[in-house]
Design a protein around this nucleic acid. Structure first.
Lengths: 137, 137
DNA sequence: CTATGTGCAAAGGATTTGCGATAGC
DNA sequence: GCTATCGCAAATCCTTTGCACATAG
């Protein structure tokens, strides 16, 4: 049977703080933010809620390079870009030509349900940082 | 200064076993395989070698859904598909229309260096398993 | 010969879980 | 009041590291 989702204060704040993020924080990034509003909250609660909310389809758990998983307030399909220097993850808009999802037939028999495109590169901040470092040396 | 890579017996076997894999194993999948040939090898050695070999560009470490990282004997750019049921990861061939990499300009200023496409779905084995389970119920 | 690599055991970092107490609905 | 959720501490899982010994080049 279906479990009822309760909107606890903790859950509400976690969701609210996540929705304020334009980038995609890790669980403990978010823990730090939430702690300024709920100083007694535990990291386990943050993890538990992020898991529950993503199971419920309200948010999305992302697996991208780096040790930790990221969380995205927007569960609808879209693509991401990863900064290879500071590990920041942002949304990226790109026109995916329609054939992309349908094309692959040489697939060892997989039934394909979708795809995501992960870009990688350098965020604006890291580009500046690196070019300044080069000038200085 | 550059460190010299020694081709130890362990490293050779690890690389050889990885190259026998058509899919993309985790470090401990590979540990199990290698152990049948080198029973005294340690998991730490497997991790250390996979890290060194991927730093050297001989293989590629993959970050895809699931807890563990995967390793790919082929370090050249290509895309993958993930089985949402058994977590198997395979190569996938798909025609990426040229504009894809260049298109995104609405990027918060990222300098884009490349991208990878991750498909997800069900492998042949899991499709059969699931459709049999449905029949049986 | 000597720097690099190994096995073992222990540490580390991220995430999950058990449990008794708390609080939505 | 019932049950989902909380905070805490401990456990778990994956990966890395320190160290004394071994070995490739």
């Amino acid at each position: 049977m279906l479990k009822l989702l309760r909107m606890t204060h903790q859950r509400e704040v976690i969701l609210h703080e996540l929705r304020l993020c334009s980038h995609h924080p890790t669980a403990d990034d978010l823990y730090d933010r939430v702690k300024t509003r709920l100083p007694r909250i535990s990291l386990a609660t943050v993890y538990r809620n992020l898991e529950i909310l993503s199971q419920a389809g309200l948010i999305k758990k992302l697996t991208i390079d780096g040790r930790q998983k990221r969380f995205d307030w927007d569960p609808t399909p879209h693509n991401h870009i990863f900064c290879m220097n500071c590990q920041r993850v942002d949304d990226i808009t790109c026109e995916v030509p329609e054939p992309l999802v349908a094309v692959p037939e040489q697939t060892t028999g997989y039934c394909i349900l979708g795809c995501r495109i992960n870009f990688f590169g350098l965020c604006m901040h890291c580009q500046e940082y690196i070019s300044n470092k080069e000038k200085g040396e």
